[in-house]
């Protein structure tokens, strides 16, 4: 049995089914990250100093623990990837499959670059003896950025499938494939929005 309304809009909702599906999923994701952000607020308002004592040393600001220029650079990478993925969808809307491949490829590369930079950041913390168990600041930092990183990994896997073997659908069902890329884009933009709030919250405040 075929899945209904994958290419055309369902008459009662006015959108294709996968779009309702991805927004429902993103709603659950808002609650997942919302729970962790509220945990951050809870820890923060109860702390006499923030970041406070970490590994036997007192840190007065998050600037003393985290590398703000590197975090800013990673923010720029993620913003750029949001543009490239929306451009990949726009390319399909304009029937330009070659451009789609180029933009989706760039999106995947941006995602990988983000993870490599994050790995360097994590390594810098570990090499200074700063681990998640060494204080509430580090615990919430690693939890939030780690969960966000996992979402980036998930997005890269899906985007790579649509860049590679999944792109065969363009020849058989271009409208459905274009919708798939829009849905993948909605997820990727959500991951970007989470970082847009996570970066100032953890790195700058």
């Amino acid at each position: 049995m075929d899945i209904p309304y994958t290419a055309t809009a369902r008459p009662d909702t006015g959108v294709y089914n996968a779009k309702v599906g991805i927004w429902l999923f993103l709603a659950s994701e808002v609650m997942l990250f919302g729970g962790l952000f509220s945990a951050y607020i809870f820890l923060r308002i109860g702390a006499p100093a923030w970041p406070g004592m970490l590994g036997g040393q007192l840190y007065k600001t998050s600037f003393d623990v985290l590398n703000v220029p590197i975090g800013t650079f990673n923010t720029m990478i993620l913003i750029a990837s949001s543009v490239t993925i929306v451009m990949s969808w726009a390319s399909l809307m304009m029937n330009d499959f070659k451009k789609y491949k180029r933009y989706m490829g760039l999106t995947i590369l941006c995602g990988l670059a983000f993870l490599v930079v994050k790995a360097f950041e994590y390594n810098a913390k570990f090499s200074h003896g700063l681990f998640p168990a060494d204080g509430n600041f580090l615990a919430i930092y690693f939890t939030l950025t780690g969960l966000h990183g996992l979402h980036v990994v998930g997005g890269i896997i899906v985007n790579s499938y649509f860049w590679g073997p999944g792109s065969k659908m363009w020849k058989t069902d271009p409208k459905r494939f274009t919708n798939r890329i829009e849905v993948a884009g909605l997820y990727w933009h959500f991951v970007d929005i989470v970082w847009i709030f996570l970066f100032p919250t953890i790195y700058l405040l």
């Binding site: 927004w23 429902l24 949001s82 543009v83 970007d192 929005i193 847009i196 709030f197 970066f199």
Partner: peptide, 25 residues
């Protein structure tokens, strides 16, 4: 951050021209 998030949601996620069912969600 609110402005940035709104820009991404409105333009990249196409909320500026989205259907009612998505807003209800």
């Amino acid at each position: 951050a609110g402005i940035k998030g709104s820009l991404v949601a409105a333009y990249f996620m196409h909320l500026i021209s989205e259907k009612k069912v998505i807003f209800a969600l």
